[in-house]
Simulated scan of single mutants.
Amino acid sequence: MGAKPPPKGRGALGNPGSRYLSHTTETVDDGWHSNAPPPLRTTLSVDHVRSALSWNDAPDIPFDRSLNPYRGCEHGCIYCYARPYHAWIDLSPGLDFESRLFHKPDLPERLRDELGTRSYRPAPIAIGTATDAYQPIEHTLELTRRTIEVLLDCRHPFTIITKSALIERDTDLLGAAADLGLARVILSITTLQPGLARTMEPRAAAPTRRLQTIATLAKQGIPVGIMIAPIIPVLTDHELERLMAAGREAGACAACYSLLRLPGEVSGLFREWLDETAPDASKHVMNRLREMHGGLEQDRRFGARMTGSGVYADLMLQRFRLAERRLGFGPPPPLRCDLFRPPDRHGQLSLF
């Protein structure tokens, strides 16, 4: 018998404690008393930030700065590599990550401050690299929209990666930025199988809806690409060419991919979900994944962690390159940094 199914609209099957806690609790039911949790509801808390931008110097990541308006993500993707971040604040990477969300109301203002420092030098900012900047709570909070307004006002280049059709709301800002060579969007799609997508990414837009979003953005003149991520051996790897073709037909001008990796607590959550959802394929999936990660569930080496290594990983790269050429994908258009202007403070002219 499999594990208990997840709550409706959620990805994780449970709520394991943070690895940093000295004590944990477990749900019990002896027929007399139970400490089973109440029905799951999404909660929203404030996450004040001292800095809007996060910096990295990883050689295999095509940006050195990023920002995320939200902590946690209601999309509930079971494979999300950002889940362990919740453990840092003593919450579970499981259902807590999907339901106990945090927003950063002062992020646009902090960003304006940072862009206004004398030492700042512009380069593309990646938005939504950890948690989706267009997850459902953005509909009412509009933090991402306010952030884009700051960037457009400063003529600062940026990229956005999302699974959400909500980005269509901001085509006015994105179109204006794209006309100046400042904006690029990537839609992430994992599978074209609706049933699999529903259990694996329960609150993200359906795959066909994401393809519609690519078409909508492309028709507005906004450079948009498709990211096939993560590729899950056995479950979705056979869809690579179909996904690329669907993205190209919708109007995507560039494509990329990444292989599933299971950091920290994500490994246990994913394997539990896999045993429940695809028990017959579970062992095969994990064995193939380890083959592509040098015997591990994730390979931390730069250059290998995203695409894997070995025979199957090499074959995946060859398939991608062949499809990329056949479908006419090219490199994404460059973003301009020469138009940057520091933010205007209180209507005063800059002295520098």
Rank of each mutant, 00 (worst) to 15 (best):
L107P: 07
E74A: 03
L95E: 04
F63D: 05
Y79V: 00
K104M: 11
C73I: 01
L95R: 01
R100K: 10
K104D: 06
T27R: 06
L40F: 05
W88S: 10
S51L: 12
S54K: 12
C73W: 02
C77L: 07
H75P: 00
S18E: 11
L91D: 04
D47W: 07
E74K: 06
A36F: 09
P62M: 05
D57Q: 11
S18Q: 10
S45H: 06
N15G: 08
R100E: 03
W32P: 07
F63V: 10
T43F: 03
N56I: 14
F63Q: 02
D90A: 14
L67D: 06
R19V: 11
S92C: 09
V46S: 00
P108M: 13
P38Q: 08
W88E: 09
T42F: 00
L40M: 10
P59L: 05
D64S: 05
K104V: 06
D60A: 12
I78A: 05
H86A: 08
H103V: 11
E74V: 07
G76N: 02
D47R: 06
D96H: 05
R83M: 04
E74L: 12
D60V: 04
C80H: 01
L91T: 06
F102M: 07
Y85D: 09
L91F: 01
D57L: 08
W55M: 13
D30A: 13
G94K: 02
H103R: 15
T42R: 07
P84E: 08
S51A: 05
Y20F: 15
S45T: 04
L107H: 11
T42P: 00
A52R: 00
K104Q: 10
T27D: 12
D96S: 00
P105M: 09
L101P: 01
S54F: 14
G116T: 03
H86F: 15
R83K: 00
C77A: 11
N68M: 03
P105V: 13
L67N: 02
D57N: 12
E114S: 10
S18D: 04
S22Q: 14
R83G: 01
N68C: 03
N15I: 06
V28W: 07
D30N: 09
V49Q: 02
N68G: 02
G116I: 05
A36R: 15
C73M: 11
K104E: 06
W55K: 15
Y79K: 05
P108S: 10
D90V: 14
S51T: 14
L95P: 04
A58K: 14
W88P: 15
D113F: 09
H86I: 02
D57T: 10
S99F: 09
E114L: 13
N68V: 00
L107G: 10
H48R: 00
E98I: 01
P62D: 10
P108R: 14
R71D: 01
I78D: 09
R65P: 07
